[in-house]
Design a protein around this nucleic acid. Structure first.
Lengths: 148, 148
DNA sequence: CGACATAGTCAAGCTACTTGACCATCCCGT
DNA sequence: ACGGGATGGTCAAGTAGCTTGACTATGTCG
């Protein structure tokens, strides 16, 4: 594998990732959820099961807890989540999704599924599964946030 | 394909992309080029063949020409590129890489090749080619800049 | 019970972008 | 040839999303 081929592969990967995020975001907006940034989606993914504290969210997103707290301010103000007292730790607060937050998370899943279906049309279902398998083995715990 | 599987694939793709960029950046720094952000690498790729104008660079990067101009200021100040008069258009300037800029671009290619070699160890050469083929067909002209 | 650790917030600062305004030069129809 | 709109580039100011630093409240452990 020549260096230039590695660059071509890298560029294709980054282009695909950028395209995916852009189209998911567009799909979420098209479903009626405005003022939502892609980063919010990653937060929703962490909050969805049972809620999370600000600190847990910060770790998940790879940012400081102050930044996570600001993000929570934002999604609370927009009605997607709410701060509740934490059962069993009076210092902490449990951030949970509101009904609208859940609806937005579902919208993001639908949008992602739509994009991936498009890939299936181009590649075929089998190759999409191969793709998923490859990626899962390469970077099972890669960073969610981009560094560029 | 269920929605949750689409999300898993999306997450794997973004994790891989994030990991790739982080490791290329680390590789470039390890080769002695400091103060270089990943965005600079995308600029280098556009400047490498024959140079480019600020406006062309802005289109390539998906930012305003003011932002591209600021980025050029930065890499000029750091010695990676220089502004030259444009042959045939007195309004424009041709931004070209310096020798150090070329060296940095080569370092990025080496770092990328190193990461991709790691993928080859995990997946096998054949599957890496399949991966590259899939990605190239999915988003041949996706955005270079992340939106999240 | 006292000392240190941890959850969260407030405040200020930084960086990489944006929008808006502007000048110099090019191109093209009259 | 020339006048007017398009284009290339820069300067200036504003913004969003992060950072670091300082602080309070609560938990944990010897």
């Amino acid at each position: 594998m020549q260096n230039s081929e590695a660059m071509a592969l890298s560029a294709a990967l980054l282009a695909t990732a950028g395209d995916l995020v852009r189209r998911i975001d567009e799909g979420v907006v098209a479903r009626g959820f405005e003022g939502v940034r892609p980063a919010h989606g990653f937060a929703f993914a962490r909050l969805a099961p049972d809620g999370a504290t600000v600190t847990e969210l910060a770790v998940h997103l790879g940012v400081t807890k102050q930044a996570a707290s600001q993000l929570v301010d934002d999604i609370v103000r927009k009605g997607y989540a709410e701060r509740r007292p934490h059962p069993g730790d009076a210092r902490a607060r449990l951030i949970v999704l509101t009904e609208r937050g859940w609806a937005c998370a579902r919208a993001a899943e639908e949008a992602a599924a739509e994009v991936v279906r498009g890939w299936g049309d181009v590649l075929g279902e089998g190759e999409v599964r191969v793709l998923r398998g490859c990626l899962a083995r390469i970077a099972p715990y890669g960073p969610l946030r981009p560094n560029w």
